[in-house]
Simulated assay, not measured.
Amino acid sequence: MQLTGIHHLTAISAKPRENLAFYTGLLGMRLVKKTVNQDDVSAYHLFYADGRANPGTDLTFFDFPAAPERRGANSISRTGLRVAGEKALGFWRDRLKAAGGVTGDVIEVDGRLTLPFEDGEGQRLVLVDDGGVDASSPWERSTVPAEHQIRGLGPIVLTVHDLPRTALVLTEVMNMRRVRDYAAHGAQIHVFAMGEAKDENNPATELHVLEDKASPMAGQGAGGVHHVAFRTPDEAQYHAWTQRLNELRVRNSGEIDRFYFRSLYFREPNGILFEIATDGPGFATDEPMETLGEKLALPPFLEPRRSAIEAGLKPIG
């Protein structure tokens, strides 16, 4: 039983209008679902992805009016976004610097070319050359040429106080493999991979973990990450993961139907929220693929409350 990679990552924005402009305008990602947080319907839940809304490409945001994140340990500290090739990274360096944001330089990290940058709220991101390891689904209406578009998520970087406790859960509970270590920015980073060994060196299947015993614990807020989700291909394996967590006495949410996928949440020992999510049914379940994200979508159990929900949301375009 193997997780197959990163499913989605959910972060926090206190400025949903600016968030929408940044991720669809500057980054050229597709808004594939405009819905609400199912646990707090006063907040948008925005999903940005590739042209076909494939699992593994979703960068999502909760619209919470929160103070800025306090950076520190026991948090998801950087989100990888995959692109294809050195030319793409050169395109993005020029595009991001022209926009005036916080942008670094193209450097090699862990044998891959990377470009770190931040969005307007300080969300820490990095573009990573994935070597074209997976097929891509460009969006024809993107502001970015197809060959340079963001292809998906990965790797995801965690910063934790206690590496051995996190490593134990990753390897003994979640069946990841510890595949290598590397040095970056004066620290040692440990790489854990999902899937079969033949799929190694695919950033879409990697979690990178940095141990930092000195920093205070992070405080969640705008510009920070809420949780990361991992892919399981079908409901049979999803149920098997629930059984596994219960047998190992890992506290979890129990199975939750999010309509677009099935979810199972738990916290690793340093407190970071993990989710296991199914690849399907997918975002085209209630909207045509051609018009995804163009109107507010609600799962069936929230549809009777549409008028009240819409009245409580601010228009964001």
Rank of each mutant, 00 (worst) to 15 (best):
S77M: 10
V83T: 02
K97Y: 08
L81C: 12
V83C: 02
F91H: 02
W92D: 01
G104Q: 12
L89E: 04
D94P: 00
W92S: 00
A99D: 15
T103F: 12
R95S: 12
G85H: 04
R78L: 09
R95H: 12
S77F: 08
A99Y: 09
D105A: 12
R82V: 11
A98W: 06
T79V: 15
S77L: 08
R93A: 13
G104F: 06
R95A: 11
T79I: 15
G101H: 04
F91Q: 01
D105C: 07
R93T: 10
A99L: 08
T79H: 09
S75K: 07
L81W: 06
L81V: 06
G90S: 11
G100Q: 03
R78C: 08
A88K: 02
G104P: 13
S75A: 15
K97Q: 14
K87Y: 08
E86N: 03
F91M: 03
A88D: 03
R78D: 04
R93W: 10
W92R: 01
A84F: 05
S75G: 13
R95P: 12
W92Q: 02
V102P: 09
G85R: 01
A88C: 09
G101W: 03
R95V: 11
D105N: 10
T79S: 09
G80M: 05
G80A: 11
K97G: 09
T79M: 12
T103D: 12
E86I: 01
T79L: 15
K97R: 14
L89D: 09
E86W: 03
G80Q: 06
W92E: 02
K87I: 04
L89N: 05
L96K: 08
R78W: 11
G101A: 10
S77D: 14
G80R: 07
A99V: 14
K87A: 15
D105S: 12
L89W: 13
G80N: 09
T79G: 05
D94A: 11
S75I: 08
W92C: 01
F91N: 01
G101T: 11
R78H: 07
A88G: 10
T103Y: 10
I76G: 07
G100M: 08
V102G: 08
D94G: 08
V83K: 00
A98P: 05
E86M: 05
G90W: 01
D94R: 02
T103C: 15
D105W: 06
R82A: 10
V102Q: 14
G100K: 04
G100C: 07
V102C: 09
K97N: 12
G80S: 13
A98D: 13
K97P: 08
W92N: 02
S77A: 14
A88P: 04
G90N: 07
D105R: 02
W92H: 03
A98V: 03
L81G: 06
R95W: 10
T103R: 04
F91C: 01
A88L: 04
T79D: 09
D94K: 01
I76M: 12
G85S: 04
V83W: 00
